[in-house]
Structures are given as C-alpha cells and as structure tokens.
C-alpha cells in the first residue's frame, strides 16, 4: 500500500505540473551557477591577461595565474548557496503540496484499507523520489557545465565528490520537505501552513546562524562560512549549539566535499551530516505521529 501511495503522489505531482516547475527551477538554478562559474573563469583569465600587460609596462614580474588557485569544482560553489535558499523553499512547497490537497479528500482515502502510517511513509517516499529525480537532472547539468568551463571531462574522483554533494543536498532538502508536511498537519489553514513553514526556514537559514556564529544575513549568502570568534562571552555560550545549525553544517560539509575550502576528514564530514540525518528522522517520526491523530473530517480552509 505504501508503494501505491508513493506512486499516486508522484503521478499527482506530475499532473499538477508541480514536478515540471520544480525541475525547471532547479535546472535554471544549476545552469545559472554554471554561467556564473563560466563568467568567473572568463573574467579571471581576462583580468590576468590585462594585469600581465600592465605589470610588464611597469617593469614588474607577472604573478602566477590565479585561476590555477581555484579548485576544479569551484564552479559549483554557488550551488552551496542556492540549495539552502531556493532549493529549500522549493522543498517546503513540495512537502506542503504533498499533503495539503488530501485535507479535503482524506476521509475518502482512509475509507480504503490503508493505515495512516503507511499513508505517511508513502507520501515521504513519493516526495523523496521526486527530489532524487530533480537532483539527478541538476547533477547532469553540473557535469556538463564543468566539462564546458574546464574544457575537460570531470575525473572519476570529481564525479564521486559531485555525487556525494548531491546526496548531501538531497538529505538537506528532505528536512524541508518534512517541515512542509509537518506544518500542514499542525495548522488548519493551508496559507497558515505555508507561512509557518517559511518561518521555520527563516529561523534555520538566518536566525540560528546569527545566534550561534554571528553571521549577518548577507554573510549567509556567501558559500563559505566564517563564524565569529568565541572570544566573546556570548559566542562562547552559543557556539556550543553551532553543530546543530544545519545550514552551517551543510555549507561546511559541502565545501569539504567539493574541496572549495580546504579538506576535512571523512569522520568530520560525517559528524557535520549527523544532525541533518537526526533531524530528518525526528521530523519523519513526528509526521507519522501527527498524521495518526489528524482530523480529516473537517477539511481545510483554502484561505
């Protein structure tokens, strides 16, 4: 029965064109990251050529080409920003839409021989499969962008790191799919559910990093996380919660996987991923518990 629900969920998203909208947005986002990467490459090469001429006219030696300082996968550093901003919002909408339409037809669904736990697991699996499909398309666009900009196919190791980055992104986005689902189950109006999910996104993306690491909103738009020093008493206390700031952990783990900001051991990357995994499991369990007690008899207010 779980598989039937998951299949129904995917078909429903395809029919509502939600899948196409999500896919198109993520592909545009990936292509944009690729164009920005290409632009970065083009600018660096152009500026370097002009700098060499200028320095030669002054009789100064030419510095080493700074493009060589950029890691191979640096092209994707903007994806590390777009996933928590645009991707997470899309994931919220995906989770929201997965459950919200059943608010009015829930009674019909549960008149069939299906348990509420099976229903919820089916919904989660359906949304997870949709996310996998969308991220696989994004992975393909990223690989093509890398081949075009670097003028060579990514190596096996690069492809492995890319796959690991997209697996991490899937886990991150699943947290927001589940938040989108849980907010539908705890509120009575669909708009209120969407706004509550947005509130959760604002707290995770902006409020928590400000409190744990002193990151201002515009610093959150930077792919590289630079937390405040713990010399201040305030941060000595709040920095203890930093490992639970999932957006910071996601960015740090992504930078390590893509090697755009130093390298870290697999153990430390796994330590950064653990809170994400833990939160996903907690939200899934909470969702299953909530759907068990949810009142589908009254339907939802569309406004």
């Amino acid at each position: 029965m779980t598989a039937t629900i998951a299949r129904q969920q995917i078909v429903s998203l395809l029919r509502q064109r939600t899948f196409v909208v999500l896919l198109a947005t993520l592909i545009v986002m990936t292509a944009l990251a690729g164009v920005l990467g290409w632009s970065s490459h083009h600018t660096i090469v152009g500026v370097y050529d002009e700098a060499v001429k200028l320095l030669a006219s002054r009789g100064d030696p030419a510095p080493p080409n700074p493009f060589l300082l950029k890691p191979t996968l640096a092209l994707l550093s903007n994806m590390v920003v777009y996933i928590p901003f645009i991707g997470a919002l899309l994931a919220l909408v995906l989770g929201h839409l997965s459950l919200v339409d059943d608010e009015t037809v829930g009674r019909l669904i549960f008149s069939r021989r299906i348990s509420r736990t099976e229903y919820m697991i089916g919904k989660i699996v359906g949304a997870a499969i949709v996310l996998v499909a969308i991220l696989l398309a994004s992975l393909a666009v990223s690989t093509i962008s890398l081949a075009i900009v670097n003028r060579t196919m990514p190596t096996g190791a690069d492809l492995g790191r890319l796959a690991a980055f997209y697996a991490l992104s899937w886990l991150y986005l699943m947290v927001f799919v589940l938040i989108g689902m849980v907010t539908v189950l705890v509120t009575r109006r669909r708009s209120l559910a969407l706004l509550s999910a947005m509130g959760a996104w604002l707290v995770i993306t902006f409020a928590f990093p400000q409190i744990t690491s002193g990151l201002r909103p515009t610093q959150s738009l930077n792919p590289i996380v630079d937390p405040a020093s713990t010399s201040q008493a305030f941060f000595r206390f709040t920095a203890k919660a930093r490992p639970y700031s999932i957006v910071e952990q996601y960015k740090a783990a992504s930078a390590s996987i893509l090697r755009t900001a130093g390298t870290e051991s697999t153990t430390s990357i796994l330590r950064q991923v653990a809170p994400l995994l833990g939160l996903s499991i907690v939200l899934a369990v909470v969702g299953i518990g909530l759907v068990d007690r949810h009142d589908y008899s009254s339907g939802s207010n569309d406004e």
Binding site: S40, Y48, P63, P66
Partner: peptide, 10 residues
C-alpha cells in the same frame, strides 16, 4: 572571484 580578492592576488 578569488578568496582574498583577485586584484590583491595579482
């Protein structure tokens, strides 16, 4: 384009 600034690197 470069951490620390492109013009500084050049």
């Amino acid at each position: 384009q470069i951490p620390g600034g492109l013009f500084k690197a050049l």
